[in-house]
């Protein structure tokens, strides 16, 4: 039957409950958000606990502004000491570049560099995206978020500046190395001595260097960005070497995190008088 009237618009159906991700239309209809039967939650849990423990400890120590120097050791959290309010460290790296106006803990002035380095580190990113943000909590376990844009926008697009923190990490590691050299003295400043604290700082700096050198940006800068390794044999060798360290980047990230906290704790214990540094010679 011919008619020029439009058929009435069908009533709008009630909006279906939002279904996204693995529950999207067209995918295999499975109500469970994941079907993993192993302990997939263990790793993100341990990661979150480990990182939280470090954050709590380092926040306390960074703001404490005390017990960070015990001749001849200086805590890695407070070195170099850039504030004028640093304790008198006759034997430590102390450059009061910041004037009197800086009243807070001098640790805050230097800690932003290692903090930025680790926050933008490719491994730590993985660790906290999984452990704290559940994005994803584990592989093939649906994440709880409705939307996801990854590192395409502000603020996460800033992760791309990681290499600058890598550049800054080198002078920081050099200064900590200098601190270790200074630690080969006794309390009066005479050279050629060593105590347990020297060993603690030495292990710490070795791990920090290994972590820094195993950085993905480092791997890229030393050779990864080349197209023809054959034309750059030295850089190729360096790239290969950094690549070997890089495959252990996660391990080094954890070891150096623990060692830096332990080194600080050691100085704290000695400086506060809770522990007497055993001298070897």
């Amino acid at each position: 039957m011919a008619t020029d009237t439009q058929p009435p618009a069908p009533p709008t159906p009630p909006a279906p409950p939002a279904r996204h991700g693995v529950l999207s239309a067209g995918r295999a209809a499975i109500a469970a958000r994941h079907l993993r039967t192993d302990r997939w939650w263990l790793q993100p849990l341990l990661t979150a606990l480990g990182l939280s423990a470090f954050v709590v400890y380092s926040t306390w120590r960074a703001f404490a502004n005390a017990y960070y120097y015990a001749e001849p050791y200086v805590s890695p959290f407070y070195s170099p000491c850039l504030g004028s309010n640093c304790v008198d460290m006759p034997l430590g790296a102390r450059w009061p570049l910041f004037g009197e106006w800086w009243g807070l803990s001098p640790a805050l002035l230097v800690l932003i560099f290692p903090l930025g380095f680790r926050l933008t580190c490719y491994y730590y990113r993985k660790a906290y995206y999984r452990g704290f943000w559940a994005s994803p909590p584990a592989c093939a376990v649906a994440e709880p978020h409705e939307k996801y844009t990854g590192e395409t926008r502000f603020p996460l697009i800033l992760q791309n500046i990681h290499r600058y923190f890598f550049y800054f990490a080198i002078p920081v590691a050099l200064i900590l190395t200098y601190d270790v050299v200074l630690a080969f003295r006794d309390e009066q400043g005479a050279w050629g001595h060593m105590g347990l604290g020297t060993l603690v700082l030495l292990v710490n700096i070795a791990l920090i260097w290994a972590y820094t050198a195993s950085c993905h940006s480092c791997r890229h800068i030393v050779g990864g960005r080349l197209r023809h390794f054959s034309k750059h044999p030295v850089r190729y060798r360096m790239w290969t070497w950094v690549g070997k360290l890089n495959s252990r980047h996660m391990l080094l990230a954890w070891l150096s995190l623990v060692s830096v906290a332990l080194a600080d704790l050691y100085v704290y214990l000695v400086a506060s008088g809770a522990f007497d540094d055993p001298r070897f010679f």
Binding site: R125, K126, R130, S135, T149, G150, E151, T152, I157
Partner: peptide, 15 residues
């Protein structure tokens, strides 16, 4: 190709 969406959480490598 949307490289920025990848947040390097390594599940591709895992499987």
């Amino acid at each position: 190709h949307g490289l920025g969406y990848c947040n390097i959480t390594k599940c591709c490598t895992e499987v």
